[in-house]
């Protein structure tokens, strides 16, 4: 086809990626808005291998071209992820938008990426010379920047099953009830055994970048949940101190206050 490649296998796609500058196209929902002049696309939307949701002993695998609607109907996808993607835009966007696109787009407001961060997700990147399997933390550099190689494609995201099974907390605030980009969103998953925190994650949209403050999370591990709940404000403050709110459309003050409130609410809700 003119100005486009439409491979039917991942192998083929990777080869094209290796030898051309074609822009990977999965769902089109962000890409087409950018209106890139003289674009040549590498269409990934009909590659079956990229459209599978599977599991092995350790991970749930979500193919890069899986749409949000597809994932919402799949029993393997964990509830935290479902809750996050169920509030992306509106049905027509969820029907087209994909996990690979959401991640590769390097937006700091990608709802599926937020859930992925909370669940210790990894991404599998493939190229003609091999593949890499790296945590989201390493993949997302900052707003607008990932460390994907020029010859690499996102093949799938991997969600650790042990994390997927944990209780979680999720909240999204957009500008309206639908068709809304997250102004602030919060996702966290945790494990409490015998009243003691065994594992905990906490991550937000609103800071201007995706990250995990693992050293602060670590200070909570081994703590009694009663004690953390009772001192939620103080513990939340440890996270907030670390955060640098990058200027955006919504005021820093708003984002900071709401992120703080949600941290407190999260920690107070642990059980």
């Amino acid at each position: 086809m003119v100005n486009g490649y439409k491979p039917t296998t991942l192998q083929e796609a990777v080869e094209i990626k290796g030898r051309t500058d074609a822009i990977p196209y999965a769902g089109g929902t962000d890409l087409m808005v950018k209106n890139i002049p003289d674009a040549v696309y590498l269409f990934l939307n009909d590659i079956d291998e990229l459209k599978q949701i599977t599991q092995d002993d350790e991970y749930i695998h979500i193919g890069a071209a899986v749409t949000f609607t597809q994932a919402l109907a799949d029993d393997l996808v964990p509830p935290l992820m479902k809750e996050a993607i169920s509030r992306i835009a509106a049905p027509a966007i969820r029907n087209a938008g994909t996990f690979g696109g959401n991640l590769g787009n390097a937006s700091d407001k990608a709802d599926s990426v937020l859930a992925g961060f909370a669940l210790d997700a990894r991404v599998r990147l493939v190229s003609v010379s091999g593949e890499r399997n790296i945590p989201f933390d390493d993949f997302c550099v900052r707003r607008g920047v990932t460390n994907i190689g020029d010859d690499e494609l996102i093949a799938e995201i991997l969600l650790p099953k042990e994390k997927c099974a944990l209780p979680y907390y999720y909240k999204k605030i957009g500008g309206r009830s639908a068709l809304a980009i997250s102004r602030v969103a919060f996702a966290g998953a945790y494990e409490v055994r015998d009243g003691v925190i065994q594992a905990i994650s906490a991550t937000v949209i609103g800071e201007g970048k995706f990250t995990r403050y693992r050293e602060v999370e670590a200070t909570l591990i081994g703590k009694k949940v009663d004690e953390v709940r009772a001192n939620a404000d103080e513990y939340a403050e440890r996270f907030i101190e670390k955060m640098t709110f990058i200027r955006g459309r919504v005021s820093t003050e708003y984002r900071k206050v709401v992120v703080t409130n949600l941290f407190k609410d999260y920690l107070a809700s642990l059980e």
Partner: peptide
């Protein structure tokens, strides 16, 4: 919005190659 394989999609966000 149009239906592609019965699914609602905004046609402004679709490049032709995708509908092949």
């Amino acid at each position: 919005a149009v239906l592609i394989d019965g699914v609602l999609i905004n046609s402004c966000c679709v490049a032709m190659g995708a509908v092949d």
